[in-house]
Computed example of a mutant assay.
Amino acid sequence: MGLTQARIAIDAMGGDYAPAEVVSGAIRAAAELGVEILLVGDPEAIRASTPHPENLSQVEIVPAEGTIEMHEEPLSALRRKPQASINVAMELVKQGRADAVVSAGHSGAAMASSLLRLGRIKGIDRPAIGAVFPTVMADKSVLILDVGANVDCRPKFLEQFAVMGTVYSQYVLGVQEPRVGLLNIGEEPSKGNDLALRVHQALSDNPAVPFVGNAEGRDILSGDFDVVVCDGFVGNVLLKFAEAVGESILQILREELPQGVRGKLGTLVLKNNLRRIKQRVDHAEHGGGLLLGVAGIVVISHGSSQAPSIFNAVRLAKEAVDNRVLERIRAQYQKVAAPATDGE
């Protein structure tokens, strides 16, 4: 029996280029990915944002009032604006009218709204944002979590991240036997601060985690690991540094290609190679990160997302829905995972 069509609610008002770029990416996703799109936001602003309003017939517009601005404190803003676009989008999932939410708006607000309206999976203390990085191996990626949801972590949080990352790697990334690593300053089990030492022991003792040891910074993109866990402070720095490196590589390629006729001929010859390079290093190709641990599928995209990023964020959400990530994490964690460490 085939999969039912995924219904994705998109916060149309969230992000630096909303609603125009969000709407553009959403319309493309509806046309190419076989998903139903619910655009949540100000109907007039959504209709005015596209030069081809006839394309809006491919999506459903769900009215909302206002958005959470980047400078606002998430919890107080969510309470002041119960009909803000991110709140309405989360409510659609809670009511069963949508299978997932995509937002390029205030990431703190998206996380807080998901916790308030959807709650956590039983047994998970803190959700984590998982981001997929390319590696030097052409057909292999690595999942890093947490990349920003939790600045301060206890050992049991990272243990839970590892369990969730293992499930995601298996069922979405297609890795039969994921190799899980702990980001650290050395390979030896004795290296690192108190948090790293305690997490290393917890992961070694947990039968639900195929833990292979510490991963140094140079190992992340080597292809030797499928999942790497860290706290959200380090993970967010790592994420933004990796994005900057990708942008720098693309900029250097543009600058170093010969100009004039020679340049055009060279670019034509290398067209397929350049496209593959862009797909591997451009963060827009990955769409954002999945918020693992909440009782719903939530993709948090970059605040600077334009149409291609929104399209890929919808693709990411669809993959999570189609592969039943939520149900698998819930079942795996409750059935298989060992009791969490005390982790005071």
Rank of each mutant, 00 (worst) to 15 (best):
M1R: 01
L3P: 12
Q5S: 13
A6N: 00
A6V: 03
I8T: 08
D11T: 07
D16P: 09
A20S: 15
A20V: 05
E21D: 05
A26H: 07
A29T: 01
A31N: 13
L33V: 12
G41V: 12
G41N: 04
I46A: 07
R47P: 00
S49I: 07
L56C: 08
V59Q: 09
V59Y: 11
I61F: 00
P63K: 02
M70D: 03
R79I: 14
R80Y: 04
K81D: 05
P82A: 11
N87D: 04
V88D: 11
M90L: 15
V93W: 05
G96E: 10
A98N: 06
A98D: 05
A100T: 11
V102Q: 00
G108H: 03
M111I: 15
S113E: 04
G119D: 13
V132M: 13
F133K: 06
T135D: 11
V136F: 08
A138H: 10
D139A: 14
S141P: 00
L145V: 12
A149F: 03
N150C: 10
A162T: 09
T166M: 05
Y171I: 14
Q176D: 15
E177I: 09
E177A: 15
P178H: 07
G186L: 00
G186V: 00
G186C: 02
P189F: 05
K191S: 12
K191L: 06
K191G: 09
D194A: 07
L197W: 07
L197D: 02
Q201R: 13
A215E: 10
A215K: 08
G232Y: 07
V237W: 01
L239I: 06
F241C: 11
A242R: 01
G246H: 01
S248Y: 09
L250R: 04
Q251A: 15
I252A: 14
L253V: 15
L253D: 03
E255T: 03
E256P: 01
V261Q: 12
R262H: 13
L270P: 01
L270S: 08
L274I: 15
Q279D: 12
V281M: 06
H286E: 09
L290Q: 08
L291Q: 11
G293D: 04
V294H: 07
G296P: 01
I297K: 02
I300V: 14
Q306V: 15
Q306S: 12
I310L: 14
A313C: 10
L316Y: 03
L316R: 12
K335F: 10
V336C: 01
